[in-house]
Nucleic acid binder design. Structure first.
Length: 561
RNA sequence: GUCCCAGUAGCUCAGCAGGAUAGAGCAACAGCCUUCUAAGCUGUGGGUCGGGAGUUCGAAUCUCUCCUGGGACGCCA
């Protein structure tokens, strides 16, 4: 909707300006004034000053006088800008009616046949689900939801880290120090302990690393005993992960991990050979990549690597899903790997690789340093979730003890706090881990937005509101205007969030809407006889957008809390 | 050593296809529940936008350089 108003303003400018600037230029130059007193849209005349060789001030004045804009009640030149003041009643009515009519469809684009695969979460088997994997999981899931809203057919792929030398190491560790009963009792904890011990011991005895590599070779060659062990580790781990995905409410369409591609790599290696891309280097097989270090395809002992599996996976996914876009929500530190991967695919002649993108994100730091699984320096997500839910429950007992389904709401609020905390800041920022911040329910947090939504729901219930399509709401409250502006820009925010692969833009808008609404709530008596229908129409529109926005982040919007 | 990312209030961050007076939240302090959920609202204090140079009518935003932190750099993923 916002675009429409800009467009109308741009058209009006063109009428006056003629060919001094192109339409496209004008549209991007239109900005939002920094202060409410300066109106709703603005056009800077400094560029034109060069063109006309006049002062920006006089140009602005000249244009403002000539401009004819139906949607504005005032067009005012100020300090070289042309400021447009939209007709509040008219725009409010349009905006609210549109949202109420469209409901949760507000901001949606029609379905397309375009397919987007998203590689997300992808935890490593036999390791605990860390805070780092949380980022990939919630960012990826939100992008999936946003893409669906924009009409994509989305395939969520959990590319489990269930293969690789790490398993050789783990198997060696288990053979040397493992205890079956202990592992059965608490698999993740015990396996992690073994993994950490392995690295501690390997520091003083490097031959352990050779043993690990040898064990992995056995695994890749199909040694039965080794495979049994691997299967067991994998299953126990997946069970643990499923608990977390259930809590977060995140579904997957595929759990094909790295191991799934074991029998699909040889043909890729053959293909690379046929296309003359594979070269030997220090007894390893590599593909040379311009401007980057070469991409390793096979180690000198003949076993495969991460890149080999990712190549096979990319080709498999294209064959199976025919994706138009394929995202990899994977940490910042793997940027080089993806550049290599995409380049190799390009050299193989696969045009579809143009639709692939690495969506990197910053690390979770502890004391300014990367958390390392190998040293056992991890924070367990499960513990954090439990604490958040517990805290939410305590809050409910204190603030709303008569609430019906306390457990369920506490779940939604606790989990919402964690997800929102992760999504509200730009994904490339590193995050210093802070339990205190994650468990904060006041200020710019998920629970704050949820609370605002619950307030709106409560008002609608008390006011017994229902929308009648033939009764156009008319809003006269000056205090409502900031809310209206945010509401009509929401569809553009969704579009930009997808273009930038950046859910934080939605989170930020939700915060702004919440702040504006709570301000309104404090200033205006909503359940007032005379204005009841008009005001509740606004409340209903706010509720719709908040709920839809939270849902796009993968967060529930409880009716009460 | 080479390459990438970041540096804005005490803390966490927003603003960055250049634009009008650099904004929030937290923390601190002072107010607001006989009115619709106080997980809320209002107010106060707090800034050489890492340093320097350049481009421009105009730079937190673009370029260069330096400093600081982090990460990546063939047989891990």
């Amino acid at each position: 909707m916002e675009m429409q108003y800009k467009q109308e303003f741009a058209n009006a400018l063109i009428q006056v300006l003629g060919e001094a600037l192109t339409e496209e230029n004008i549209t991007v130059m239109i900005e939002k004034p920094k202060f409410n007193s300066l109106g709703d849209l603005a056009f800077p005349c400094f560029e034109l000053a060069k063109h006309y060789r006049k002062s920006p001030n006089s140009i602005a004045e000249e244009i403002a006088n000539k401009i004819d804009l139906k949607i504005a009640y005032k067009v005012e030149p100020v300090g070289g800008y042309i400021n447009v003041f939209l007709k509040k009643e008219l725009v409010s009515m349009f905006t609210i009616s549109k949202i109420l009519k469209e409901g949760e469809q507000y901001g949606s684009s029609p379905n397309t046949n375009k397919v987007m695969t998203i590689d997300l979460s992808s935890p490593n088997i036999a390791k605990p689900f860390s805070m780092g994997h949380l980022r990939s999981t919630v960012i990826g899931n939100s992008l999936a939801l946003i893409a669906e809203k924009q009409g994509y057919q989305v395939v969520r792929i959990n590319h489990l880290g269930d293969w690789g030398t790490q398993f050789g190491k783990l198997i060696v560790a288990y053979d040397m120090w493992g205890n079956e009963e202990k592992v059965k009792k608490s698999p993740i904890k015990e396996l992690l302990a073994l993994y950490v011990k392995f690295h501690v011991e390997a520091d003083s005895d490097p031959t352990l690393n050779d043993l690990g590599r040898a064990a992995f070779k056995k695994l890749e060659e199909g040694d039965e005993g080794t495979i049994e062990l691997w299967k067991w580790f994998r299953e126990e781990s997946l069970n643990e992960f499923m608990k977390i995905y259930d809590r977060l409410g995140i579904p997957f369409d595929s759990y094909h991990g790295e191991a799934f591609y074991n029998d699909k790599m040889e043909s890729v290696v053959e293909e690379l050979k046929e296309k003359g891309l594979l070269v030997e280097s220090d007894a390893a097989q590599v593909v040379e990549v311009e401007n980057f270090p070469p991409c390793l395809i096979k180690k000198s002992d003949g076993t495969t690597l991460y890149a080999t599996r990712d190549l096979a996976a990319a080709i498999y996914r294209q064959e199976k899903y025919h994706f138009d876009k394929s995202l990899y929500v994977v940490g910042n530190e793997q940027t080089l790997h993806f550049k290599q991967l995409f380049t190799v695919l390009q050299k193989m002649g696969y045009q579809w690789q143009e639709g692939m993108a690495h969506v990197p994100f910053g690390m979770i730091l502890k004391d300014g340093k990367k958390m390392s699984t190998r040293k056992g320096k991890v924070v367990l997500l499960e513990e954090v979730i439990k604490e958040a839910i517990q805290l939410a429950l305590t809050n409910i007992e204190e603030k709303n003890p008569n609430l019906d389904n306390k457990e369920e709401i506490a779940n939604q609020v606790g989990v919402g706090a964690i997800i929102f905390h992760d999504l509200k800041s730009y994904r490339l920022n590193d995050i210093e881990f802070s339990l205190e911040d994650m468990l904060r329910f006041e200020g710019e947090t998920g629970p704050y937005v949820q609370y605002t939504h619950a307030r709106a729901a409560s008002l609608l219930k008390k006011g017994n509101y229902s929308f009648k399509e033939d009764n156009q709401p008319n809003l006269l409250d000056e205090e409502a205007w900031p809310i209206i502006k945010l509401l009509f820009s929401f569809p553009e925010v969704i579009g930009k969030a997808l273009d930038d692969y950046d859910p934080s833009q939605i989170a930020k808008t939700l915060l702004e809407i919440s702040k504006a609404f709570n301000k309104y709530y404090a200033a205006v008596k909503i359940l007032d006889e005379d204005q009841l229908y008009n005001r509740l129409s606004l409340v209903s529109a706010v509720k719709i957008v908040l709920k839809e926005g939270l849902n796009l982040l993968g967060i529930q919007a409880p009716e009460q809390m």
